[in-house]
């Protein structure tokens, strides 16, 4: 690299580095600082010590939000690790028209969460498609309150997240399937293994690492859920605010005269620890699995 002036690399790196420092690193530090203040959305704020964290302990809405997050994660994990893999296997073979199907399956990912949540709101309406069909078939006698019952609303949002995530994880699996040796499949086929056994004994072990990565991604995004619950509950967080997520609470405290950026920052710190835990656990599982 003789022809380099010493500052050339820095000229190239500085814009990205500036963004990193100003919009990632400084906000991380500032979140901690803010959490000890009572800063308002309009500005100002004074040091209040641990007051925000004391409030956290008695915040009933936060307790519901954390419970919702755990339910969200536990339900999403199995569905979103398994179905997208099956989809990836389905679209892997290059049949005529397969590009169309791949693109179509990816469409819910490309659409905004707001758009798809509004679509689901209409489908799950008291007089919407699902209730209409179920009543017609005689499965139910009256409409199910998908959008006004605490648990049904949570379940609706979870199904929406699963539906929207299928294509996303399918693509990641698809990239991983390309690395599973075709020879292994052929060898297994020669040995008389059918498609089902090949799936369990060749495909699944082949994408094991990806599966762990995907389960980390699923857990973290389940804990960060916002738009789906926000839109489906009409921005109100369900009956009595019991269908809030942690991010919804952060958003609520970020605005208006009632807003409190200090408390919102304390909630952000809770969110940080909540999302880091499953990441560490799964990364650990991965390492142990790799050693075994």
């Amino acid at each position: 690299m003789r022809y380099n002036r010493w500052f050339t690399p820095w000229v190239l790196v500085i814009p990205a580095l500036t963004w990193l420092l100003v919009f990632n690193l400084w906000p991380s530090i500032n979140t901690v600082i803010l959490s000890f203040t009572n800063a308002r959305p309009i500005g100002g704020g004074t040091f209040v010590g641990l007051k925000n964290f004391e409030t956290l302990l008695h915040d009933e809405q936060l307790r519901w939000a954390l419970l919702n997050s755990v339910i969200y994660m536990v339900v999403c994990l199995p569905f979103l690790t398994v179905f997208p893999l099956l989809l990836a296997v389905l679209v892997e073979k290059k049949l005529p028209g397969i590009t169309f199907f791949r693109t179509a399956f990816y469409t819910p990912v490309v659409a905004s969460a707001v758009v798809v949540a509004l679509i689901w709101q209409w489908i799950l309406d008291d007089r919407g498609l699902v209730n209409g069909l179920a009543e017609k078939l005689g499965v139910i006698s009256g409409p199910l309150p998908f959008l006004s019952d605490q648990w049904l609303l949570l379940l609706s949002a979870i199904s929406l997240t699963i539906w929207k995530g299928l294509g996303y994880y399918m693509i990641i699996y698809l990239a991983a399937l390309g690395n599973v040796g075709r020879e292994l499949h052929e060898a297994a086929a020669v040995d008389g293994a059918g498609p089902v056994r090949r799936f369990f004994y060749v495909t699944v072990p082949g994408v094991r690492g990806t599966m762990i990565l995907i389960s980390i991604l699923i857990s973290v995004s389940a804990l960060r859920v916002f738009s789906e619950l926000f839109i489906l509950s009409g921005g109100k967080g369900g009956p009595g605010g019991r269908d809030n997520s942690v991010v919804m609470l952060i958003q609520q405290y970020s605005q208006g005269f009632e807003g409190n950026l200090g408390y919102a920052s304390a909630l952000s710190i809770v969110l940080f620890f909540v999302t880091v835990v499953p990441m560490l656990v799964l990364a650990r599982l991965n390492r142990r699995g790799a050693e075994a």
Binding site: N30, T31, S265
Partner: peptide, 14 residues
Amino acid sequence: VLPGEVTIISQYVT
């Protein structure tokens, strides 16, 4: 490793 939502409030302050 840092979810964007964690820093969204202080990002707004910035």
